[in-house]
Design a protein around this nucleic acid. Structure first.
Length: 811
RNA sequence: GCCCGGGUGGCGAAAUGGCAGACGCAGCGGACUUAAAAUCCGCUGGUGAGUAAUCACCGUGUGGGUUCGAGUCCCACCCCGGGCACCA
């Protein structure tokens, strides 16, 4: 048969239309007849167009999914849209387009792009988180959390632009100012907001990481551990002078408490307001607002004396109470005892303001310094600490915490860096929080049978004042579910991390109208066999999903502790060493490459450029090489698939290379997904086939064609499918069995073994397989160039590494 | 500052204690062509020696170490990227 030119456009357009028309093609059988395998890629935010980060992420996932199909698994490979979020609302303000419309049209475009790239998704499972069918279950789950006391309301601070008189998201604050009013500094306002009690699961989130050790990157686990930030210490009450009011502080160094020379409050601490009621009030407000605008890089420690004192519970000493901008309201108790002699930050602060420094710990092998030049932060022996003097730090901590508890002024305590998850957003484009405020009955949950609380469409977007929902009377006005009286609906919407915390469960039972999903249907697929996404989501998204999974487990919906058994974090796609982002205007769109070279080439190119876990710098210059390879392969198969035979003189070497390639590519899939080397191996095979083409027998020719196409199938699905049909086969190529390496055929006849003298390569010998050690030694010493380097010298040692290397050590 | 990654030809990279630079890009030379494109073949880390096949020396950020043998392991340092950043 004459060779066919590689026409990527014709092949890909024809096949993508066929695939789109066949919804069963990528459907999981889900009948238990084959082992299940769930491949999950992080769902995209429908920003408008795919970028190369998406293409990379989904190329990796799709390649794996197709391989697993060929390995005989029942593969679940879904896709959806993280469709709520601020950009849609910003676009609405700017373009007078409804966020829903904007989102829907973006999804339509991006879906077309994904299909054009040939990704094998079961589109019948498609989820869009902005659909009431989906977000009603956000609401339902929120209500379950509320019932369990996991969703609660508390006052907290938000960014506020006085010019727009509206709440700003963190990302709308630029250099401490409003993004739309670059000279208007953001203020902090206190607002009652909804929180999820993720801290109640802090210990489980830490402990269950054991289950993830094998399947998650160590780096991600470390990041999560640090994020949760468990810290053991003690809480102790200082007493406000002249009152019985307690000021509770958290410390990990209760052993240093005799060295506490002041108490410092976070500016947001309620007591700060109380103590600064008079002329200090403006100063306090300025500090609170300033906190929000801080560039944490260059925040200088500042503070002021409140004029009040507090008593140290251990020795009764009166110490001044300060307010300090470096004390965090969100950590511990929001108040600290400052021990400048033994804490670097306290040292800096107290030195700046002339607060005394009182050393109370000496190094085990040293003396207590009189006036230290820096803080001694290590453990040591306690001094100047009353009855505790002479104890080691460690013993002191234990016994002093016990004493505090016995006497009722403190206790041993564990604090987490992790904070409860604030889910309230004063925004329109999100899941309405299903709560009702009744003047008579207080806060009342929306009854389940009234779900979903549907997001109304007829709203106005001004970007000013209250959120669009709060301004819509028809939405706000409602009846109290308890007393039936007039009440007001909650107008906050949920953080979009809620949407992405459980979507992967919904994929398995996506149209269930009775519940979030049917446990019996969903559980067999969990934990997800392979989750793939950017390392940028290593903390928040993955931590929230883990938390959500545990909550769903506790209400009986799922049976696993952890949602994702294996996690793969792909590297970023950068341009000139910089992360691609809209604001930098350096986004690369795949369309151009797909039009010019086709989806297969685009996919090969992204996989070939670097190993998938590494960052890759975008440089298209080598894309030609991928196209050349693919068209070379295509032409080779098309002209050889049923060509007459040669004399068979090159069969052995071609088949050897073929089976070596099968071994190599299979190993890459099973071990580390270095698809760049898999593709390189396919190229090597191609080079060999081209070189041995004329001598191939008809049978060998055919075998090479078939196996080559099968090997190509996970990487370049269009070309492989077309060639597979050309070989006369029916049925999709990605459902064919993955080829197996025949070790007999793959074996080299002779082994080539390098010979070193004193560790330097001096020659090579060829020996048959399974040659005896003595034979190898003799051959090595007989090698001419080896002889010139060993001549006249004594052989001290002769090392033979079977099949690998000979090293002759001479003196 | 702390915690992760990483540093190898002109470029992307390969080599999981055993032949450094597979594979690809770019470059150079050749075949085909009226010519070009496409395609195919060959060369391609540096220095030096040889007519040549070849051979020697140097070479994986820097300096030390372990080892018969180190890009790979250990120690110290430099540089780049990412994450966290006053967490009491």
């Amino acid at each position: 048969m004459p060779e066919k030119p590689y026409n990527h456009e014709e092949i890909e357009l024809k096949l993508s239309a066929e695939w789109a028309a066949n919804p069963m093609l990528y459907r999981a059988a889900d009948d238990g007849s084959k082992p299940r395998y769930y491949v999950l890629e992080m769902l995209p935010y429908p920003s408008g167009r795919l970028h190369m980060g998406h293409v990379r992420n989904y190329s990796i996932g799709d390649t794996l999914a197709r391989y697993m199909w060929m390995k005989g698994y029942d593969v679940l490979h879904p896709m959806g849209w993280d469709a709520f979020g601020l950009p849609a609302e910003n676009a609405a303000i700017k373009n007078k387009m409804h966020p829903g419309e904007w989102t829907v049209s973006n999804i339509a475009h991006m879906k077309k792009q994904l299909m054009r790239l040939g990704f094998a998704y079961d589109w019948d499972r498609e989820i869009s988180t902005c659909e009431p069918d989906y977000y009603r279950w956000n609401q339902w789950l929120f209500l379950r959390m509320y019932e369990k006391g996991l969703a609660y309301r508390k006052s907290s601070l938000v960014n506020w632009c006085p010019e727009c008189s509206t709440v700003l998201a963190n990302e709308q604050v630029v250099d401490g100012c409003c993004w739309r009013h670059e000279t208007t500094p953001v203020e902090q306002r206190e607002l009652d907001q909804w929180f999820l009690r993720i801290t109640a699961y802090a210990d489980q989130l830490l402990e269950d990481m054991e289950q993830l050790e094998a399947g998650w990157p160590a780096q991600v686990l470390t990041m999560q551990r640090n994020w949760i930030g468990r810290s053991e210490g003690a809480e102790v009450d200082f007493t406000l002078a002249g009152t019985e009011q307690k000021i509770r502080v958290f410390t990990t160094r209760i052993d240093t408490i005799y060295g506490a020379t002041c108490v410092i409050l976070a500016p947001e601490h309620p007591l700060s307001r109380q103590l600064c009621a008079g002329e200090l009030a403006p100063r306090l407000k300025a500090m609170v607002d300033d906190q929000a605008r801080k560039d944490p890089e260059q925040l200088v420690k500042e503070g002021f004396f409140t004029g009040h004192h507090a008593a140290n519970p251990f020795n009764g000493a009166q110490v001044p109470i300060w307010v300090g901008n470096f004390v965090l309201w969100g950590y511990g108790t929001g108040a600290i005892m400052a021990v400048p002699a033994h804490d670097e930050r306290d040292f800096e602060f107290c030195t700046k303001y002339g607060i005394p420094i009182a050393p109370v710990i000496r190094p085990a092998d040293g003396a207590l310094p009189e006036s230290p030049a820096e803080a001694f932060t290590g453990d040591g022996v306690m001094e100047n600490s009353g009855e505790w003097s002479g104890l080691t730090s460690e013993e002191g901590r234990r016994r002093m915490a016990e004493r505090a508890e016995a006497q009722g002024f403190g206790k041993a305590a564990i604090t987490y860096r992790l904070k409860d998850w604030g889910v309230s957003r004063q925004r329109y484009w999100g899941t309405p929080i299903p709560m009702i405020h009744c003047a008579a009955c207080g806060i009342q949950p929306v009854p389940d049978d009234q779900l979903p609380v549907v997001l109304p469409r007829d709203v106005e977007f001004t970007g000013r004042g209250q959120s669009p929902l709060a301004k819509l009377e028809s939405f706000v006005k409602c009846a109290c579910p308890k007393c039936g009286g007039a009440a007001r609906r909650e107008t906050d919407t949920m953080d979009t991390f809620v949407d992405s915390s459980w979507y992967f469960f919904r994929y398995v039972d996506p149209r269930n109208a009775e519940k979030p999903f049917e446990p019996a249907v969903v559980n067999p697929w969990f934990p997800v066999d392979q989750y793939i996404g950017g390392v940028t989501h290593a903390i928040m998204h993955l931590l929230y999903s883990r938390f959500w999974c545990k909550v769903m487990r506790d209400i009986g919906l799922v049976s696993v502790d952890e949602p994702f058994g294996n996690l793969f974090t792909q590297g970023m796609v950068q341009l000139h060493g910089q992360t691609m982002s809209k604001s930098k205007g350096n986004i690369v769109d795949p369309d151009e490459m797909v039009v010019k070279y086709g989806a297969d080439t685009c996919r090969l190119f992204t996989l070939f450029a670097a190993p998938p876990e590494k960052n890759m710098d975008w440089n298209e210059s080598s894309v030609e090489g991928q196209y050349r390879f693919l068209s070379r392969l295509f032409r080779w198969v098309s002209r050889n698939q049923d060509a007459g035979g040669g004399d068979g003189s090159t069969d052995a070497r071609a088949l050897r290379k073929l089976h070596q390639t099968i071994r190599k590519v299979t190993a890459d899939f099973d071990n580390r997904w270095h698809f760049n080397t898999s593709i390189a191996a396919l190229m090597e095979l191609m080079n060999e086939l081209q070189a041995s083409e004329s001598g191939l027998s008809a049978g060998a020719r055919r075998e090479c064609c078939e196996k080559l196409v099968l090997l190509l199938a996970p990487f370049a699905p269009f070309a492989a499918e077309d060639l597979w049909a050309g070989l006369g086969h029916a049925g999709p190529v990605f459902k064919q069995p993955w080829p197996e390496c025949d070790e007999e055929l793959a074996r080299e006849e002779m082994l080539e073994i390098p010979v070193q003298v004193n560790g330097k390569l001096r020659g090579k010998i060829a020996v048959p397989h399974g040659a005896a050690q003595a034979e190898i030694e003799a051959a090595a010493q007989a090698e001419p160039n080896v002889q010139t380097h060993t001549e006249g010298k004594a052989i001290v040692k002769l090392i033979v590494v079977p099949g690998k290397m000979v090293n002759i050590v001479v003196r």
